[in-house]
Each structure stands twice: as C-alpha cells, then as structure tokens.
C-alpha cells in the first residue's frame, strides 16, 4: 500500500491528473466527430484510452508510489492477459468476413 500523508491536500495534489483525464475525454469526443477512417479512429481512441488508464493506474491507484518490484511484477501478468485476449481475435475475424455464427 502507498505511504500515508497528511489529510486535506490530496485533492489539490491530484487535481492536475483529474483535469488531464477530463481533457483526454474531451479530445476523444472531438476526434469522434472528425472524418477519420474507422480503423484510424479506433487506433487514436485506444491510444488515448491507454494514456488515461495509465494515469489512473499510476496516480489514482498509487502505482507510481509503489515498490519497483510490484510494478515489474505486473509486466508478465499484463503479457499473460494480452495473450489470453488472443482467444477472442478469431471471433473478430469471423465477424469481419460476415460469417458470425457457425452453422
């Protein structure tokens, strides 16, 4: 768990992160109304979502203040989750070819 601090200043401390998260959300909405290709838009939105999730993880969930060993231990876990997500890609490709269900 993260180290404790004096109460009262935490809101002010994390206010910049809060405003950056709101700004990223606003940028995402702006991009959604622009004339990008679907693949390009998904790529940009996913990149921004990863950025905002990283900010939430590092500052709101205090990962930035944790021990380095805990931080490093999350890397193999993340790789494992990404590998497990490969299970669903085959379904996505079937959908792209307009054959969603096996008959």
């Amino acid at each position: 768990m993260a180290a404790s601090g004096r109460s009262g200043n935490v809101i002010a401390k994390y206010l910049p992160v809060y405003f950056v998260l709101l700004a990223i959300a606003a940028i995402e909405f702006f991009l959604a109304y622009q004339n990008f290709s679907t693949a390009g838009l998904v790529g940009m939105l996913l990149f921004l979502a990863i950025c905002s999730a990283a900010l939430g993880l590092l500052y709101f969930m205090h990962l930035a203040h944790e021990k380095r060993s805990l931080f490093l231990s999350l890397i193999p876990a993340t790789i494992f989750v990404l590998l497990m997500m490969n299970m669903i890609w085959s379904d996505s490709i079937r959908l792209l070819h307009m054959r969603p269900f096996a008959h």
Binding site: E28, A32, L45, L48
Partner: peptide, 8 residues
C-alpha cells in the same frame, strides 16, 4: 468503454 463502445 466510452471510446470503444460509444465514440466509434
């Protein structure tokens, strides 16, 4: 959820 379900 917001970008991938709503915004796309």
């Amino acid at each position: 959820v917001v970008p991938l379900v709503y915004l796309t």
